[in-house]
């Protein structure tokens, strides 16, 4: 017994690996680079876990791809880590009996937007639905561009949503940006009639305009073409290819490049912009905006406009009653999704 007693217990502590060359400040523009955590509150079923992983990939490179979370981690733990690491945004997935929810919040002060995920498709589903899914190697090495459309109706909550999503990715400086770093685009389209936000994630591909498909393929693939059926080399150029020749390059989708992009897209030639979806795909409904991070006064609520203040009072009274209830969790969420989820230690 004594022998075991004497033995010193060693607790394994994983050394905190210093993030190599992940700057907190963009060295070109001097702006602070926004970073994000994507994590879940409560237990997620399989497909939603996958969605969480997809979202992390979408937020690359300035996100924690392998963030591990435990059941006992509360929001405060994440906040404590977020400070030193310079994490500015939280994307929190949760699930209730009615639907999955996505909360997007700024740390440490808020605000927090709560979205109900009406429908979603994973990146895997998207890839399966495509004949030729595309994933170049360095697709996720650069942050995506973001396009917000339909948000300009002047409503306060929409404006806030716009600002939130604009700041979630690093801003680009058009004077210095390299076109080769623009590989992905995240689209948020607000539909006024249904009040739903379509969330899409595309990869950007550029193709030279006015070059026949065969020539393009030759330049791209480095392969000797099959000339068996031709009488002359010139036939290869003159003979029209099949099918996709008719891919009409509409004028709206062509750009003139400022610099060379790869081998086939030369500077100052016309190129067509082609987008291919990479997923995940979500249809979001903005439900609520809170002042703080998952706490504080309700600025906007989809369901009960104007009742926010009253509910706030109710929340306060409840807060005084049970102070040891320390973290917002799923049970509470399930009781009533409209009820404010409070982090008691916040105040």
């Amino acid at each position: 017994m004594a022998r075991f007693g004497n033995r010193k217990k060693k607790v394994f502590v994983k050394p905190v690996a210093a993030k190599k060359n992940q700057p907190t400040v963009d060295h070109i523009t001097g702006n602070k680079i926004p970073k994000s955590f994507v994590f879940a509150r409560g237990k997620l079923p399989g497909p939603l876990k996958q969605l969480q992983m997809d979202l992390r990939k979408l937020m690359l490179p300035y996100t924690a791809l392998n963030l591990k979370e435990k059941k006992r981690n509360n929001l405060r733990d994440f906040l404590n880590v977020a400070g030193p690491m310079g994490v500015t945004h939280f994307l929190i997935l949760s699930k209730t009996a009615t639907a999955p929810y996505l909360r997007v919040g700024r740390t440490p002060q808020g605000p927090t937007l709560t979205f109900k995920i009406q429908e979603y498709s994973l990146a895997v589903d998207i890839a399966q639905s495509q004949v030729r899914p595309r994933c170049p190697q360095d697709l996720f090495k650069n942050p995506p561009l973001i396009v917000l459309s339909g948000f300009g109706s002047g409503d306060q909550h929409l404006k806030l949503t716009t600002i939130m999503f604009q700041n979630i990715f690093p801003a680009i400086d058009i004077n210095t940006v390299k076109l080769s770093s623009c590989q992905r685009i995240v689209l948020l389209n607000y539909n006024k009639d249904t009040k739903l936000i379509d969330f899409r994630h595309y990869s950007i591909r550029l193709q030279p305009v006015g070059v026949s498909r065969r020539i393009r393929k030759i330049v791209q693939n480095h392969q000797v073409p099959d000339l068996r059926n031709l009488h002359d080399v010139s036939d290869f150029l003159t003979k029209a290819g099949y099918g996709s020749e008719s891919e009409a390059d509409d004028e709206a989708a062509t750009v003139t490049l400022a610099s060379d992009l790869g081998r086939i897209n030369q500077a100052s030639t016309k190129s067509a912009v082609k987008l291919q979806e990479i997923g995940p795909r979500m249809t979001l409904q903005l439900i609520k905006i809170e002042e703080g991070l998952c706490s504080g006064g309700v600025i906007f609520s989809e369901y009960e406009n104007g009742d926010g203040k009253k509910k706030q009072d109710k929340e306060d009274s409840r807060k005084q009653q049970d102070t040891d209830e320390d973290e917002e969790d799923m049970d509470e969420d399930q009781e009533d999704i409209e009820e404010d989820l409070e982090d008691e230690e916040e105040d």
């Binding site: 058009i174 623009c182 950007i204 750009v255 490049l257 400022a258 912009v273 979806e277």
Partner: peptide
Amino acid sequence: LIGVATKGVVKLFNAVNKAQHAQ
């Protein structure tokens, strides 16, 4: 939606082209 996104990309690329052409 793809059309909207494409429009956005085109706008950005054109702006970049304009800005970087000068320098």
